[in-house]
Amino acid sequence: MSPNDAIFSLRGVTKAFAGLKVVTDVSFDVRPGERLALIGPNGAGKTTVFNLISGAYKINEGSIILDGVDIAALPASRRCAMGIARSFQNIRLMPHLSVVENVMIGQHARTRGILELLTPLWMTRARQEAEAQLAAFDVATYPNQAIATLPYGIRKKVEIVRALMSRPKVLLLDEPAAGLNTNETAQLRDFLMRVADGGVTLLVVEHDMSLVRSLCDHTVVLNFGRKIFDGPTHAVQEDPAVLEAYLGRPAHTAATPRAETADHAS
């Protein structure tokens, strides 16, 4: 893939906490409309990469390029305005705001100028827009309901709708299927496919491989903060480096009993 047709790229991104490198020289490209899965064993640095992209952390080295612009130096709020939105591993909706108010927060990134900031919201179509968006994605809830009273699955969807309200070019989803049952996961998959059909590029961190296989066409695998695989999703499971990372030993010896005893002996 040539970097020119990528909407979003990481170039040599490195992040260290107190000298300890948690993300090392990670690069990948995402094409417009692509659905990319970011997978890897626990502690591989997937959520850290999300935090680096969304601006929760600052990178030490490298660049993050969105639509040809390096956004690595921008504060998180500016990145959101440029078209990066995200959901969170543990749902983080504002507890004292109603469903529709939470969704309306997503519109903030599109606000321009002090006048728009200080116009009473009932004079604008903001609320109707948010309610329409909720309805469009079949989020079955009362707009004025309190967040705490919503079922878990609905809250997940509300969070994604909130992210979509900023009209992102790239949507980061951190373990969207965590805590959902098979049926709910299937619903979520259809939901995300509709989001992607709307022209949004998806970046998904996910442990549920069946969701990854059915949703994502492109996969990047991280292990100990390094990229070990970058290619089509269907090729992931035959890749020796990935198998080694997940199974803990070289793939070509994994099946042989002798290697296993050698492992035990060491």
Binding site: C80, H96, L97, I105, R110, L118
Partner: peptide, 24 residues
């Protein structure tokens, strides 16, 4: 009732997420 007020309430609840949602 304005967007500024909504942003204030959002920050009161969770300033980190507010920043990530594009609120300065």
């Amino acid at each position: 009732q304005t967007r500024f007020g909504l942003a204030m309430r959002a920050i009161h609840d969770d300033d980190a997420v507010s920043e990530l949602m594009g609120i300065g």
